[in-house]
Computed example of a mutant assay.
Amino acid sequence: SVSAAREAGFKNISLDLMFGLPEQSLEIWEESLQNATQLKPTHLSLYNLTIEKETPFYYQLRKGELILPSEELQLKMYERAVDYLSQAGYTHYEISNFAVKGYECRHNKVYWNNNEYLSFGPGAASYLNGTRSKNILSPGKYIETLLEKKEIPLFEKETLDQKKSMGETLMLGLRMVNGVNVSDFEKRFGKTLDSEFGEKIRKLRNEQFLEYSDKKLKLTHKGILFSNEVFVELV
């Protein structure tokens, strides 16, 4: 697939890899990393397997029929990937993403910076003027409503108050390895990080999950490993 894409003229190629899979060992994961980098993609995304409720894996896990790597081993897989890809010349710019310099994903950075985006089509999600919305899923009903009522057929929408918008901006921004620019954040909302999240930030800094560096608030190495717990604590 990668060769075919290059032959078709694509120069910017991204690969997705998963770890924490059933029966996956550290050696198998290292082999996957080696195989991926040999293809010389410009971007790599790494995802830890998440077991969702009401799925075949969920029921197999409950019955003891699904053997997953331990949490300790999954952490080792992630840390090994960070080290390996850094040595291979990739910049670790977001918790799950690595890129050759200049090939960071501009599309996803819109989300991580909590900027606005407008989407069209069935099931598409948008964020505009402080309101998050999602279109109806049915293509037929989407087209029918669009033609008859001359309006975007929404399935749901939510207007975020400033407090929630600040929390989401902080949480999403911390996914970036460079962290949240404190000055930009405060200009955007007209309030200081300390006035809104000071107590929580101090607690997480004392526990070595967060740090201030170059006028930015960012996750420490420990914070990256336990980012989900940090985000729950923070917002």
Rank of each mutant, 00 (worst) to 15 (best):
S3N: 14
S3R: 15
G9W: 03
G9I: 06
K11S: 14
N12I: 01
N12A: 07
S14Y: 02
S14W: 00
M18T: 00
M18E: 05
F19T: 04
P22L: 08
E23W: 07
E23C: 09
E23G: 04
L26W: 07
I28E: 15
W29H: 06
E30I: 07
A36W: 02
A36T: 13
T37A: 04
Q38Y: 02
Q38S: 13
L39W: 01
K40F: 04
K40Q: 14
L44I: 15
L49T: 07
T50S: 14
K53F: 06
K53M: 11
P56F: 10
Y59R: 12
L61S: 05
R62T: 06
R62N: 14
G64V: 09
E65L: 12
L68A: 12
S70E: 08
E71N: 13
E72L: 12
L73V: 10
L75E: 15
K76V: 00
Y78M: 13
Y84P: 01
A88P: 02
E94Q: 01
S96Q: 10
S96A: 08
F98C: 05
V100W: 03
Y103Q: 12
Y103V: 04
H107P: 01
H107G: 09
N108M: 11
W112C: 04
W112V: 02
A124Q: 03
A124E: 09
A125V: 09
Y127C: 06
T131I: 09
K134F: 01
I136V: 08
L137R: 14
I143T: 12
E144G: 05
T145D: 05
K150S: 13
E151N: 09
K163N: 12
G167E: 08
G167Y: 00
T169I: 01
L174Q: 05
L174H: 04
M176H: 06
V180P: 00
N181V: 06
N181S: 14
N181R: 13
S183C: 06
S183E: 13
D184G: 13
K187R: 10
R188S: 02
G190Q: 08
T192M: 06
S195Q: 15
F197D: 00
R202Q: 13
R202Y: 08
R202E: 14
L204P: 07
R205K: 15
L210R: 00
L210A: 05
Y212I: 11
K216N: 12
K216W: 03
K216C: 13
L217P: 06
G223K: 08
I224T: 08
N228T: 02
F231D: 08
V232E: 11
E233T: 11
V235F: 12
